[in-house]
């Protein structure tokens, strides 16, 4: 039997098998994903290296011209920090909420969700009202006589952090919260009755069991902040542009190839960070036991 007809046969068998199992139900999903996610990603990857023939010029431009490397580095470092800060702030909030009565939990989660329904632009502008020269904080400080000239809080890196954390924090809280609700409520109890102080019960039982949620929440916040550009552009200073700003600018200028190269770098960097975080987390397993395992 010629090779190609054999291949055809096995393909046929494969299809028949697929149709006989209920696995075929995922086919539309896979097609949709391929069409809307994989294909555009491949297209971006290709257009970053094909520009009237195979070329490395876009990556060369990134590495040698302008301040792209610096912006890239800053975007990465900032996103990692935003991720860490959101988890550090969001985790205790989620912890607090999950230990309330069910009715209070619903109410508090609603409060957490409300800001998500508000446009990022509006929330960003709201920060201007708070942090501006004639904003609430400055006016209060002047009124209290603590300062006599308004402080520069707006259009600083600090303002970018404050605004981005405020925007992304609800997502961090939700991710932590949903992981915490999965934890069997009798486990911390069991730890306590077996002699663990509240801190040790948290450290050895609750924390390791909710670590997954904290990581998820870091990863989501990190990914989102890698792609942020409205907020840094509106509340940041001249050194606060993020890579997404540069991508948007190049799309406007029809520099598709270069924009694709930048987008690809952003994607790869994001994936690398996520993988590294995963690996570190797996090494973290030490936290998970009381050290008896060989």
């Amino acid at each position: 039997m010629p090779a190609h007809s054999f291949r055809l046969l096995s393909l046929g068998i494969g299809i028949v098998k697929l149709l006989r199992s209920s696995d075929w139900l995922i086919v539309p999903g896979v097609l949709l994903l391929a069409f809307f996610f994989v294909a555009p990603t491949v297209e971006i990857a290709l257009s970053s290296i094909f520009d009237e023939g195979l070329t490395g010029k876009h990556f060369e431009r990134f590495a040698t011209k302008g301040a792209y490397v610096e912006v890239f580095r800053r975007t990465l470092v900032r996103s990692v920090w935003i991720g860490i800060l959101c988890v550090l702030i969001g985790y205790p909030i989620a912890y607090f909420i999950v230990h309330r009565s069910l009715r209070t939990q619903v109410f508090l989660m609603l409060l957490i969700l409300v800001p998500l329904w508000t446009s990022i632009l509006i929330r960003t502008y709201a920060w201007m009202v708070v942090l501006g020269r004639e904003g609430i904080v400055n006016n209060a400080l002047i009124w209290l006589g603590l300062i006599d000239k308004p402080l520069r809080m707006m259009f600083t890196t600090g303002a970018v952090y404050v605004a981005m954390i405020q925007i992304l924090l609800p997502i961090a809280v939700i991710a932590c919260y949903s992981a915490m609700t999965e934890i069997d409520r009798t486990l911390p109890r069991a730890a306590k009755v077996l002699g663990a102080s509240p801190w040790k019960a948290f450290r050895h039982v609750f924390l390791p069991l909710s670590l997954e949620g904290a990581l998820t929440s870091f990863v989501i916040v990190f990914m989102l902040s890698m792609g942020f550009f409205i907020t840094p552009a509106l509340v940041g200073g001249r050194k606060d542009a993020m890579l997404a700003n540069v991508i948007a600018h190049n799309v406007e200028q029809l520099n598709w190839g270069f924009a694709s190269a930048l987008a690809l770098l952003l994607l790869v960097a994001t994936i690398i960070v996520i993988v590294v975080v995963r690996l570190l987390a797996n090494r973290f397993v030490g936290v998970r036991s009381v050290g008896m395992a060989p």
Binding site: G66, Y68, H249, Q253
Partner: peptide, 14 residues
């Protein structure tokens, strides 16, 4: 000239 000057501008701003 935008491409070259924009690059210089971005670097200058930073």
């Amino acid at each position: 000239n935008t491409e070259a000057l924009q690059e210089r501008w971005d670097a200058w701003l930073l």
